[in-house]
């Protein structure tokens, strides 16, 4: 069990643009931190630098009280779960679990005890003498988890461990990983590109984009107060509506129409962020309401997503399923639910 501290961490691959730059992050003991971002944003690179599988170009990684920059992966006291599980195909499940302990010259009795304990926790005891290829995807996933927990390491590192599973199993395993981590209290860093997975697992989210940190915060905080346009568009499903707007006379103006949203002081264009679920049907002609030209409707059962255009810009609204729909839909908005960003810097204004 340990804290992990990243200080101004950067990585540039030979002959490439920086894959990660200027990442600083303090992870508390026992905390579950999720690194989330689109493909290629440098999540894996960051995780692998913590693991010691990738050299560090600039900055410092600290695990507990030690700076680990120059330590081998084995000396960092971490365990990692890989996307493809990386189970040793020629060893039985038992041998897979024991391998790391044997390498560390642990006594046989202690190895047996730990393997049995991990097998009981993960319910893989019946498969201990099988080879990985004789297991289902979900079972392999558990064995990979088991290999991490028998080591009782200072930290768990996960690189998209669920992305090879089908949707249903992914939800189940997600829950199990969360429970297991709570129960063991081991500091964890988890990489995913799936924002739902990120929201449900994390104590704290780190949203990455192009190798830089966009925002760090608790899931709900990030959801409610996205710090940048990028985060606003990335976190939440359906994605937040982002509309280019202007500010005139202290109000936000969209397509020549002043909205009931106060503009923060300053000049220049803004981006107005509205979540689909924060829009509600209004009677036509309500001042400040948005006039949506409907193009199509997505039925989700309990609610429906109405797609269309406002002032020539795409917009999605979530409405109840019993609403009668016409070609046009007037949408009222709650001024407090509006997010405003500077259009040039992408930073949050209020």
């Amino acid at each position: 069990m340990a804290t992990i501290a990243l200080q101004d961490l950067g990585k540039t691959y030979a002959g490439g643009a920086p894959a990660v730059s200027g990442v600083s992050l303090d992870i508390a003991d026992g905390e579950f931190v999720v690194l989330v971002g689109p493909s290629g944003c440098g999540k894996s690179t960051l995780l692998r630098m913590i693991a010691g599988l990738e050299t560090i170009t600039t900055g410092q990684v600290r695990i507990g009280s030690r700076v680990v920059n120059d330590l081998e992966p084995a000396e960092r006291d971490i365990a990692m779960v890989f996307q493809n599980y990386a189970l040793y195909p020629h060893m039985t499940v038992r041998q897979n679990l024991a391998y790391g302990l044997k390498n560390r010259r642990m006594a046989g009795a202690e190895i047996d005890r730990r393997v049995a304990e991990a097998a009981a926790i993960l319910e893989i005891a019946p498969y201990l003498d099988r080879k990985p290829r004789q297991l289902s995807g979900g079972q392999r996933q558990r064995v990979a988890m088991g290999r991490a927990i028998v080591r009782e390491p200072a930290a768990f590192l996960f690189d998209e461990p669920l992305s090879n599973l089908d949707a249903k199993l992914r939800v189940t395993m997600r829950g199990e990983i969360r429970q297991l981590q709570r129960r063991l209290g081991t500091t964890s860093v988890y990489v995913t590109h799936d924002q739902v997975e990120a929201m449900t697992l994390a104590d704290r989210l780190v949203v990455l984009n192009k190798g830089r940190v966009e925002q760090i915060g608790a899931p709900l905080e990030v959801y409610r107060q996205p710090a940048t346009v990028f985060v606003a568009g990335f976190i939440g499903a359906p994605a937040m509506n982002l509309l280019n707007a202007a500010r005139e006379g202290g109000a936000v103006v969209l397509g020549g129409q002043a909205l009931a949203v106060a503009a923060p002081p300053g000049a220049g264009p803004v981006v107005l962020g509205l979540r689909a679920e924060d829009l509600h049907p209004a009677s036509p002609g309500t001042p400040g309401a948005l006039d949506l030209a409907v193009t199509h409707v997505e039925e989700l059962g309990a609610q429906r997503l109405v797609h269309g255009h406002v002032a020539g810009q795409p917009l999605v609204a979530a409405v109840t399923a019993d609403l009668a729909l016409a070609d046009r839909l007037a949408l009222g908005l709650n001024p407090r639910a509006a997010h405003l960003f500077d259009a040039t810097s992408g930073r949050r204004l209020a």
């Binding site: 693991a51 599988l53 992966p73 084995a74 990692m80 890989f82 040793y88 391998y99 790391g100």
Partner: peptide, 14 residues
């Protein structure tokens, strides 16, 4: 797969 050797490296094998 490279990840097998990486996993072994993390598992303490030189």
């Amino acid at each position: 797969p490279a990840s097998l050797r990486e996993a072994a490296a993390i598992d303490g094998a030189g």
